[in-house]
Each structure stands twice: as structure tokens, then as C-alpha cells.
Amino acid sequence: MSADAAVIDVKGLCKSFDGRRVVDEVTIRVGRGRICGFLGPNGSGKTTTIRMLCGLLKPDSGTGTCLGFDITREAGEIKRRAGYMTQRFSLYEDLSIRENLDFMARVYAVPDRRRAVEAALERLGLQPRAGRLAGQLSGGWKQRLALAACLLHEPQLLLLDEPTAGVDPKARREFWDQIHDLAASGITVLVSTHYMDEAERCHELAYIAYGKLLVTGTAEQVVSRSGLATWTVSGEGLFDLAQELRHQTDVAMVVPFGNVLHVSGVDAAALERAIARYGGRPGLQWRRSEPGLEDAFIHFMEDVREAHR
């Protein structure tokens, strides 16, 4: 992939609300046909960043392009070619499903509007209920409708803000299959999510916390960059063990996952020494394992939180 083909290419984006920096020097590059997962804790600035990418908010500083258009000066061109799915349902609850799609198709001057709308309804499986008001749909169905609406004009760039929040697993899988199909056809996707399994389905990840972009790269790169070493332990008395482990300075995180504990530390050797003390306890099985994405993210987040104090 050549460097100038990046569809999203922004540098040093900053945004403050009421004097508080909520997006701080964010730099993102996403190449054509790539799916970039945008992750970060609540209030970390994901939505704000996405809004700046599609011209809904003016960055205080920083520059960049989406689809080759300047994000501050040519927002209109970006809007025409990008599809933005808002985190909060923002179609008209007092319009029917078909009327909503019809409105969006008209606004984007979709050629052969009627057919496009019917096709979208069919893909959604909503044709029999197309006359129902959007406000009466369940949360998950609203999400699906919103996605269909922002795909109507065949955008080249998709900006999806938590598109699968509240969507059931099967619909979620279908959604991701669709995203991969779209990416294969050359569409670029930036998708924010809080689900780790979804993060793993992205080509690359960007992790933001407290407005700062902490890591970018593939899932493996992110995990290895965290430098974490992880052990899993199963057996009896895990609750008490967890309490004890948390007091160890070389143990960075102790996270229960069902019947096992994930014990992680930054320094593999020190971690090994620390848990060696418990190695002899009867009924405990220790195993060296790979840290997960979630471990990595939580570790990153705690790191910046320390720095913020």
C-alpha cells in the first residue's frame, strides 16, 4: 500500500470542550479497504474524533484529509462520499422505516432511489415491516436500520460509532461479515467498539484513552507492545488468591475469567518469581499463557491513568 493512498490521514487533531482537552494530538492513518477498530474507554474521545473526521466538529488544531479532502475546508465533499453512523440513533422516530430510508436516499441523490430503498429493506429483512415507525423498533433493529441508511449512497468511507451496541450475536456476526465484504470491495471502515471479539476482527486497531492515542497496529502488535506476560491459574480458593496476588508489586493485573484467573505483569521474570511463592499451593494449576487484547488495553489504560494523576 503506497503512503499517499491512505483514506483517513489526519495529524495532531485536538479538540477542547469548555477548556478541557478531550481529543489530544490524535494521528490516524487508515489505508483503502482496511477496517480500523477504534477502541477506548468511555469518554475517551472516540465519538469526538469521528465527528471531526466527517466535518461535524471543527478541530481546534491539527490537519488532515479523508478520501483526499481536507477535513476542515472540504467537509461537504467528505459528507457526500462518507457514511456516518451515529452512536445514538439519529434517524426520525416519527417516520416509518421506508420513509427514513427514502429521505436519506433523496438527500444523497441516490440514483434509482426506489430500487435502492427496496434493496436495502430486503437486505435488512424489514420489507414486511417497512411501514412501521422507526421509533417502535427495538434497539438492535434501530442499529441495523441506521447502518442500512448510511450504506444507501454507497459511501467510500464508513465511520461507524458503536454500530453493534445492543445487537444480538447472530446479527453481529452478519454485520461483521458485511463489513468485511464491503472492505474487500475497497471501502474503508473506521469502527468504534467496546467488544474485544470485534476488535480482533479488524485489520488494525487504534486505542485511545483520555483523548490520547496510545497504540495503533494489528491485534498482535498491540498485545506484544503492551509487554505483558500472563499466567492463568485454575483450582480452589481463587478468590482469596486473587486478593493476595493484588498486593504483589510485580503483579500488574489479576482478572477473573469464569473459573480461571489471568495474572499479568510487565516484567516476565519478576512475575514468575512473584507467583512462584504460590506455585506450591495444593489444588492450583498454573499455566503460562498469552495475554489477551483486553489485558493489553486495560494495562494501557491504567498506565495513562497513573500518568494523569
Binding site: 457526500r80 440513533f89 439519529s90 426520525y92 422516530e93 438527500v107
Partner: peptide
């Protein structure tokens, strides 16, 4: 108030 402004503004409508 209903939050539909965000969607409207994200479209090319002037």
C-alpha cells in the same frame, strides 16, 4: 432535542 440533528448535519444537505 431528538438527536436527529447529528444525522442531518452529517449528510450533504446545505
Amino acid at each position: 432535542e431528538r438527536g436527529t440533528m447529528e444525522n442531518l448535519l452529517a449528510t450533504p444537505v446545505r
